[in-house]
Measured scan of single mutants.
Amino acid sequence: GYDPNALYCICRQPHNNRFMICCDRCEEWFHGDCVGISEARGRLLERNGEDYICPNCTI
């Protein structure tokens, strides 16, 4: 089920109804503003069928 207190992202904070994006490599969720991806950019990636790779996986 959905846990509203689950911690995500590099900031280890809950979802808090903020835009989030999922890394296509590790499948962890990240707040867009923490990883520099706007909601519009996230939608563009999705539309173009491009993967989002998080900072942890791009090292």
Rank of each mutant, 00 (worst) to 15 (best):
R12L: 07
N16W: 08
N56D: 10
E39A: 04
N56M: 06
E27W: 07
C11Y: 00
A40D: 09
E27V: 05
G42R: 15
N48D: 05
F30R: 03
E28I: 04
D33I: 03
I37H: 07
R43P: 14
N17H: 10
G32E: 11
R43N: 12
P4Y: 04
I10V: 07
G32I: 14
H31V: 01
A6P: 02
R12V: 03
D51L: 03
N17F: 05
R18F: 04
P55A: 13
C11S: 00
N56V: 06
D33P: 06
F19L: 10
R47I: 12
P55I: 06
E28Q: 05
N5V: 05
N17G: 11
N56P: 06
E28K: 12
C54K: 02
C23T: 00
N16M: 12
L7Q: 11
E46Y: 12
R41T: 07
M20F: 04
V35I: 14
R43E: 14
T58A: 13
G36D: 11
G49Q: 06
H31E: 00
A6K: 02
C9H: 01
V35C: 07
P14T: 11
R25E: 14
N5S: 04
L45C: 08
H15L: 12
C54V: 01
Y52W: 13
S38M: 13
H15Y: 09
H15V: 13
F30K: 03
E27F: 06
R41K: 10
L44M: 11
R18Y: 10
E50W: 03
C11A: 01
I10E: 06
G42W: 15
H15G: 11
C11T: 01
R47C: 07
I37M: 05
Y52E: 05
D51R: 10
R18P: 03
V35S: 03
P55K: 15
P4G: 06
C34H: 03
N56T: 10
Q13D: 11
L7E: 11
R47P: 15
A40Y: 07
E39D: 06
P14L: 11
I10F: 05
D33G: 09
D24L: 05
I21Y: 11
A6G: 03
D33T: 10
Y8H: 11
P55F: 03
R41N: 15
I37R: 09
E50I: 06
I59V: 15
Y2D: 09
C34R: 01
C57E: 02
W29Y: 12
P4E: 04
C23E: 00
I21Q: 05
G32Q: 08
I37W: 12
Y52Q: 04
G49M: 10
C54Y: 00
I53M: 15
C22E: 11
D33A: 06
F30Y: 09
E50P: 12
I53Q: 09
C11E: 01
V35M: 09
D24W: 04
Q13I: 07
P55H: 09
R18M: 14
S38Y: 05
E27S: 09
E50Y: 02
C22W: 13
C26R: 00
Y2M: 14
R43T: 08
R41E: 13
C22F: 14
R18H: 13
Q13C: 04
N56F: 01
C22T: 15
E46P: 05
S38C: 05
C9V: 02
I10P: 09
Q13N: 08
I10C: 03
C54R: 00
I10W: 05
N5I: 04
D33E: 09
R25G: 07
I53L: 14
L45A: 03
G36R: 08
C34W: 00
L45Q: 15
D3C: 08
P14G: 11
P55V: 05
R43D: 03
D51E: 11
D24M: 12
C9L: 01
D24K: 15
L44G: 13
Y8K: 13
N56L: 04
A6D: 02
G36H: 07
I59W: 02
C22L: 10
P14D: 03
Y52F: 10
R43I: 13
I37P: 04
Y8R: 13
H15P: 06
E46S: 08
D24T: 09
E27I: 05
G49A: 12
T58D: 14
I21L: 08
F30C: 07
R12K: 14
G49T: 08
D3W: 05
N17R: 08
G36T: 11
E46N: 10
V35H: 04
M20N: 12
N17K: 11
I53K: 15
I21N: 02
N16Y: 03
D24N: 15
W29V: 15
L45V: 11
L7R: 10
Q13Y: 05
C11H: 00
R12I: 02
I37D: 02
A40H: 05
E50H: 10
E28P: 01
N56R: 06
Y52G: 03
G42V: 12
I37K: 14
L45E: 12
T58Y: 03
C34F: 00
D33R: 10
D3P: 14
C57P: 00
